[in-house]
Amino acid sequence: MDCKIARDALPLYFDGELDRTASREFEAHLDGCAICRVALIELDALRTTLRQDAPRHTAPQLLRKRLEKFAATQAREGAPIHPRRGGSAPRWLAHAASIALAFGAGGMAVTLWNSPRHASELAQTSMHSQLARDLFASHWRALAAASPVDVISTDRHTVKPWFEGKIGIAPTVHDFAEQGFDLVGGRIDYAGDLRLPVLVYRHGQHLIDVFVLPDTAAMASAATIAESGYRIDPVKIGTQNAAIVSDMDAGEMARFAQLLAAAR
C-alpha cells in the first residue's frame, strides 16, 4: 500500500470501516510510515477531546417521563397501526416513508403475511416480520453492493476465525462445493441492533445468504416467507438456528437446508 492510498484509507481504518484484509495492509504500511502514524494520532486526539469535552447532552428526565406517559396512553388506546392508509398522507409521513425506502434496495415494498388481531400476537408478529424484513433488506443491500462479502474465501478455515475475531462468534462453516453450493465468504450485517454473522454461498446464478441467528432471535415460525421472488427459510446448522435468504426455488432451498442441518 503506498502512502497516497493509505491516506485515503486512514479515516476508514480509524472508524472501523475497513475489512480485516485491508486493515492488515494498512497496518503494515503504518509500521513503516511516520507521517500516517502522526495523522492517526491526530484523529485519535480529536476524538478523545470531543468525547471528553463535548459531552453528550442527555435527555432531560422531564422529557423522558412525558414520552413514556405518551407511549403508555397510546398503547392503552390501541393506536391504529395504519392510521392513514389509503388517505392522503401528510408530509411528514412522506418524509418518513422516503427514509424507510432508502433502506430497501430499489425501494422494494415488503408485504406482511399475517394480520393479527390481539395485541400480544401483534407484538410477536411484528418482531418476526421485522426480523424477516431486516434479513430481506440485508440480502438486497448485499446484492446491490460491490461485493456481497467482507471476507472472501472458499476456505472455511479462513471464514470461521474471521468471525471469531470480529464479533466473538464462531459459526460452523462448511463448504458444499461438491454438492453445488460454493462457499463465497462471509460478512457481518445488522438486524435491528443485532450484529449477525452471514455466510455467503453461491449456487449457479443464485446468491445465498445464511444468517446465523442467536437463540433470542430465532424465527418463530418454521414456514417459508416469500417476497418478490426471494424466500426466507428458517433452518438449522447442526443445532444452531439460522435463516437462508435467496431467490432459489423451493426444491433447491430444501436441498441446501438439508445439507446445513446435517453439518456438524
Binding site: R56, H57, T58, A59, P60, L63, R64, L67, E68, A71, Q74, A75, A79, I81, H82, R85, A89, R91, L93, A94, H95, A97, S98, I99, A100, L101, G107, A109, V110, T111, L112, L122, A123, T125, S126, M127, S129, Q130, R133
Partner: peptide, 29 residues
C-alpha cells in the same frame, strides 16, 4: 423530500416507542 410511496410493513407503535426511548439520549444530543 421523498416521493410518497406507501410501504406496507407493520411495526407496532409500542415497539417503536421502546426503540425511541432506548435511543432518547442520542436523539436529544
Amino acid at each position: 423530500i421523498g416521493r410518497c410511496r406507501r410501504v406496507t410493513t407493520a411495526t407496532s407503535p409500542t415497539l417503536v416507542g421502546e426503540l425511541a426511548l432506548h435511543h432518547l439520549d442520542a436523539a436529544y444530543n
